[in-house]
C-alpha cells in the first residue's frame, strides 16, 4: 500500500478518535452541568410538546435566524440542508458490503452541491463585506468556511467536471475504513484533496464552534418548559442551601386584620 494511503487511513482513525472522545466528553459535560434556574426565552413553550415544536422549527427551519436576518438565513439554511443531503449522497461509498437499493437512488442529491457552494460563498461574503460580521470574525471563522468551500469545490470537480476518480477504488477505500479492510486510495490526487480536509473537520468538530450542533439541544433557553410557577425546579447544588429549614423570624409588630 502506498505511503499516502497509509497516512490517510491513519489520519482518519485519529480524527474519528478525537471526534468520538471529544464529543462524548462535551456531551457528558453539557448533560451533567446543572441548570439551576428556569430561563426559557420568549416565545416560550408552556409544555413539553411546545418544546418539541420549538426544536422542530429551530432545527429544520432555523426559525430564529429567519427572524433575525433573511440573507444569513438563506445562506445558512441552504448550506446546512445541502450538507445533510450530501451526507446521504455519500453513504453509498461508505456502506460496507451489499448496498441498500435506496442509496442508489440518491444520485440526484449531488445537485445539492450548488446550494452548498451558494450558501458558503454567501456566508463568506457576509463575513468579508458586512462590517459588523467582519468585526466579530476570527481567522478560524474564515478558515472554516474556506475549508468547506475547498471540500465542496473538489467534490464538484470530481462529480461535474472531468476529474472523476476510479469509483470502485473510492468505494473500497471508504467502506474499508468502516470495516477495517483497508485498501488503496484511487490514484487521482484530487480525491485526497477532497477527503483530507473532511477528516480535519471531523477532528476539530469537538474543539471548535462546530459544537453549536450539539449545543443547541442543551440550551436551557430552548429546552426548558416555561412552567416555573407550577413545578418547583431545583438543582442539586441549589437544594443544598435549604438544609436549614428554619427561617429566623425577627420580632416584628404585625397587626391582625
Amino acid at each position: 500500500m502506498s505511503l499516502i494511503s497509509i497516512f490517510l487511513i491513519f489520519f482518519f482513525y485519529v480524527s474519528a478518535l478525537i471526534f468520538i472522545s471529544g464529543l462524548s466528553y462535551k456531551l457528558i459535560q453539557y448533560r451533567r452541568t446543572p441548570a439551576p434556574l428556569k430561563i426559557p426565552i420568549a416565545p416560550s413553550a408552556l409544555d413539553k410538546k411546545g418544546v418539541l415544536l420549538r426544536y422542530f422549527r429551530e432545527i429544520f427551519l432555523f426559525a430564529s435566524l429567519f427572524k433575525a436576518n433573511k440573507w444569513t438565513w438563506l445562506f445558512g439554511w441552504s448550506f446546512h440542508l445541502a450538507l445533510v443531503l450530501l451526507f446521504f449522497r455519500h453513504l453509498v461509498y461508505f456502506w460496507p458490503g451489499e448496498v441498500p437499493l435506496i442509496l442508489y437512488k440518491t444520485e440526484s442529491l449531488k445537485y445539492a452541491a450548488y446550494p452548498l457552494i451558494f450558501g458558503l460563498l454567501g456566508l463568506l461574503a457576509r463575513r468579508v463585506f458586512v462590517d459588523r460580521i467582519r468585526y466579530i470574525s476570527a481567522p478560524s471563522d474564515y478558515l472554516m468556511l474556506l475549508v468547506f468551500i475547498f471540500i465542496a469545490l473538489t467534490g464538484m470537480m470530481m462529480t461535474f467536471a472531468n476529474y472523476h476518480p476510479n469509483i470502485l477504488m473510492v468505494k473500497n477505500f471508504a467502506s474499508g475504513l468502516i470495516t477495517f479492510k483497508w485498501s488503496e486510495l484511487p490514484g487521482e490526487i484530487i480525491f485526497v484533496f477532497h477527503i483530507l480536509p473532511v477528516f480535519c473537520i471531523i477532528a476539530i468538530f469537538p474543539l471548535s464552534k462546530l459544537l453549536h450542533a450539539p449545543g443547541v439541544f442543551f440550551a436551557p433557553t430552548f429546552n426548558q418548559v416555561d412552567n416555573a410557577r407550577k413545578k418547583r425546579h431545583l438543582s442539586d447544588w441549589a437544594s443544598k442551601k435549604e438544609d436549614n429549614l428554619e427561617i429566623n423570624l425577627e420580632s416584628k409588630n404585625l397587626k391582625d386584620k
Binding site: T33, A68, N69, T72, K209, G215, V216, A219
Partner: peptide
C-alpha cells in the same frame, strides 16, 4: 460558574459567529 450553570458552559461553546444578533 461554568460548572454550575449549563447556560454559561453551553453558550460559551456554541456561538458560530453568524452575526444574527449584531444589529439587535
Amino acid at each position: 460558574t461554568k460548572s454550575k450553570y449549563k447556560s454559561v458552559q453551553v453558550f460559551l461553546d456554541s456561538c458560530m459567529k453568524c452575526g444574527a444578533c449584531t444589529d439587535k
